[in-house]
Nucleic acid binder design. Structure first.
Lengths: 172, 172
DNA sequence: CCCGTGTCGTTCGGCCCCGAACGTTAGGCT
DNA sequence: AGCCTAACGTTCGGGGCCGAACGACACGGG
């Protein structure tokens, strides 16, 4: 690593200069700034939401977002094949395998090899897992509600509809 | 792992039964289903977008989303202190340290210890890094545009405004 | 001058995440 | 029966990600 003999612009100079630089650099490119803002805000907001949840409701019960989602799916769907559970939890089956491992170690879920087709493995909640998710989910939903409340009804419907369009198009 | 002597409901039975179960289980809880759908769709859409980008534009140049973001910030802002870069890239400084390590190994960025305050480290693009980001970014933005095009103008503004509200409230 | 106190970036352990490779099993075709 | 092919879940290597702990450093008050 180099060292630098100092003459750093102050934060204020920097802001102004940075904007000038940005405009100078971006000005001659055919850019869609709205699209940039949209995608980057989407990303930031989701990261913020996820962090918030993982640090409050989920931290108390030591569950990652994905682990929680898996439990939720099992709660609603009942015993589920690994592949479907992975799809529903929005991760690859390789990832899900690891998540189920940790959930199994904690005694929250159990695996079961099917006899009719021995390639298949299903996952189901244990009693303990069921107790946990039914206790945690209402609190989780209350957090979701707090997020949704920040938006107007129009914004909410516009967003949900827009997100659906994206999901329909992109490979999910 | 247990084994199971089979009598699995078919997929169709399952769908119907699962919905019945879901309604039965959720019916007596004070739930905000709209909030649930909103948050879960947000999450799924962002994951889909991120995967899409990481598998097309970013895969070609072997950059993760975060690595790309860091390069972009450095491109726009110029030489930046580690802490600010982490905040801007939306990760903790611990994470950023690792990302900068890999970028540095590839010769795309360089670290510099400041002499005025020897606790500080700044990161800047190398010529190679600058060449890479200025080549990749337009393609990245074109992908962003493709996503944004899926929405109506109204949806776009509603979404951006809604996301800003979320970001303003949640600890980012 | 020196000694707290606070901030910097880095390191560490643990988990999540992915894609590729792998062994196992099912099922059709000859 | 004996292949071939395809689908299943797991494993593995590489990296992202976080929070906590850490050493280096700055700076003000005794």
């Amino acid at each position: 690593m180099d060292t630098e003999t100092d003459r750093r612009p102050t934060r204020l100079d920097d802001q102004i200069q940075a904007e000038r630089d940005m405009l100078a650099r971006l000005g001659d490119l055919p850019l869609d700034l709205d699209a940039l803002v949209l995608v980057s805000n989407l990303h930031r907001a989701v990261a913020a939401i996820r962090r918030e949840f993982e640090q409050t409701v989920l931290a108390e019960v030591r569950l990652s977002w994905t682990a929680f989602t898996a439990l939720w799916v099992l709660w609603i769907w009942g015993e589920t094949e690994t592949r479907e559970l992975a799809h529903e939890a929005n991760v690859t089956k390789g990832t899900l395998s690891g998540v189920v491992d940790t959930l199994e170690k904690r005694g929250l879920v159990a695996r079961r090899r099917r006899t009719s087709d021995r390639r298949l493995v299903t996952v189901r909640l244990t009693d303990e897992g069921e107790a946990l998710i039914s206790e945690v989910f209402p609190r989780f939903n209350r957090e979701e509600q707090r997020v949704a409340e920040l938006l107007t009804a129009e914004q909410r419907t516009a967003m949900v509809d827009g997100l659906r369009r994206i999901l329909r198009t992109l490979p999910s």
